[in-house]
Simulated scan of single mutants.
Amino acid sequence: MARSRWWLGAFALVGVALLVGVFVLIGQDRTPPDRPGPPGRGPLTVVTIGDSTLSGEGAGDYTADTNGKDGNWCHRSPNAAVNKIELPGVTKAVNLACSGAPAGQIGLGTVKQWTEPSQAQQLATLVKDHRVTAIVVAVGANDDPHFSRLISECFTSWFMDDGNPCSEKIKDDWQSRIDAMVPKVVSALRDIKKVLRTAGYSAEDYQLVLQSYAAPISPDIPEDLRNLNGCPFRTDDLRWVKETGAADLTEGLRSAAEQADVRFLDLSRSGEGHEACSGGADPSTEWFTRFTVEWNDLTDADRFSHAIQESFHPNAEGHAQLARCLSEFLGTSERSAACLKGEDGNLHAAPSVLAQNDR
């Protein structure tokens, strides 16, 4: 969610279950046994598709080819969740996600994001020499919700003493934006399934998971950090993001997952207690970036507009926590779950009803 570089959009996550077969020899039949799991050749692979929530925006150390080279600002990071997912038999992780990607670029078609073509089409190329067993998708926040514009409105609201909370304006058509987003997400998910079906995959050969977004900011932050040193938003707006915005967006994406017949991972409450600025003077406990400025980029005309792109996205620890939850979810057959903090302080995959009932 590069251009949208926003909290809501920003985050957060989804996962899939690994299916492993066994070689079977029947009697004296010398026919080569079926390959376990997905068809084809190559390493057993987990793939992420989507926007900044999965590309690694905010996690730093972006690959050179996605950090502005020739106009590519996908910001893929080696610290992204896909590189930390642990699944039996999986030896390869591939990150196709691109910051700012809309549903149109994730599905089949001609839409590009930061010079890159369709992610579904990239997947079609990947399955020629990789056996894809799990795909995690994050999509929707860069479509009708238009977080890039909303974050600007909320910043302006904070900056102007006489301004109204931006959430007051967002409320007017927030649900209609989500409703308009849902069919676009469904279409993108169906395109991903079409690519795998064309490659000879059956529904039992892989798992496809749609994840929702975390609320990376909270009203429960120190007053002295509600500024350019941390989280420059009005308290009313911070509360709306956490209590309403992320929850409503999650329900829209849950509907999309059901319509597309894929698994669903609820991230709406995954950042609780670890939001940006929640640590006060000690940001080490936070799983999301604060308002972040790459000062050197301000002196480069080609990089100037991307100087605050990392703001309010999961940091490296946030991605590690997401990967922990994804790994657990992918190891189950549950159709849906929620990433919630456990007694050990880490994220775990819990029955999604827990998150819904505790709102």
Results as ranks from 00 to 15, higher is better:
E258V: 10
S77A: 09
K194S: 13
S148M: 12
D61C: 08
G68V: 05
C166K: 10
D302G: 04
C231A: 03
D129A: 09
D191M: 03
V132A: 04
T292S: 14
H146C: 04
D297R: 15
E272L: 01
T285H: 07
G200I: 06
S255P: 06
E334K: 13
K169C: 06
E328F: 04
L189Q: 01
D300I: 11
F329G: 12
Q309D: 11
L87T: 02
V136L: 14
G9V: 12
L265S: 02
A141S: 10
S202P: 08
R177L: 07
C325I: 10
S187M: 05
F147Q: 15
L225R: 00
V132R: 09
G27W: 05
H274A: 06
E258N: 11
L322R: 06
R290E: 15
C74E: 01
R41A: 14
I106A: 12
S4C: 14
W287F: 14
G230T: 10
T133P: 04
I151D: 04
D282M: 10
P216G: 15
L253A: 10
S333K: 10
G107T: 13
G42L: 07
I308Y: 00
A101V: 09
L340T: 00
G37K: 07
D236W: 09
V262R: 03
V262E: 01
E317F: 02
S352D: 06
A80V: 06
K112S: 04
S55H: 01
A323F: 07
I49T: 01
Q211G: 09
H146E: 09
